[in-house]
Amino acid sequence: MKKITLFFVCLVLYNGKLFAQQLYKMDVPKLVKTAFLKHYPGVIPFWEKEHANYEAAFQQNGKATVICFDANGNILQTEVVIAIAELPPAIMLYLENKFTNYKIKAASRITKADGTVHYEAEVNGQDLIFDTAGNFIKAVKA
């Protein structure tokens, strides 16, 4: 049952990512696998490659998590699925002012390698990216 749940979560996380490619563990560079295991020993992730980077998706503390690595095993960012209610109020206000009849399909907190935190809200087929103060940064096709 856990594998089915993780698979479903991974599908949700990767919904719309046209350039992502599912990988077998043996296709992931050793530096990337070693870096992952250093931070998450004993965790078995679902691997994908997007452009030149490698993404490991797994459950952590009951939340779907994706870690993005470069080919040298450096963590580029960590994305954790959050409840829509966990989005900062300023983001909700922005959405109410800019969209009519919108529905947030998914939400996540993204932490970049330098510690910068962004929030993502999937709305109307777009991933809307915000800073921690709720300021809109950009939209990316989901």
Rank of each mutant, 00 (worst) to 15 (best):
P41G: 05
A85R: 12
L76T: 02
I91V: 15
A20D: 15
N97R: 15
Y119T: 04
A85I: 10
K33D: 05
N53E: 13
A90G: 01
A90I: 04
D127H: 01
A52L: 13
H118T: 07
K98A: 12
K138V: 00
P88I: 08
P29F: 02
Q59K: 11
N101K: 13
A90P: 03
L37P: 00
A56D: 08
L93H: 12
T132E: 15
I82R: 06
E86N: 12
V117M: 06
Q22D: 13
Q21C: 09
K38Y: 14
P89Y: 05
E86L: 05
K112N: 03
H39Y: 10
Q22H: 10
K98N: 13
N74W: 01
A20I: 02
F130I: 07
G115M: 08
K63F: 12
T65E: 03
I82D: 06
K49P: 05
D131P: 11
F99V: 02
T111M: 07
F19S: 06
A90M: 07
Y119H: 12
K49H: 05
N74Y: 06
M92T: 10
Q60W: 11
A64T: 04
I110P: 01
A83M: 04
L37Q: 15
P89W: 01
V43L: 04
I129G: 00
F19E: 12
E55Q: 14
W47Q: 09
T116D: 01
D27A: 10
A106W: 05
N53F: 07
I75M: 14
A20V: 04
A83D: 15
E122W: 08
L128W: 10
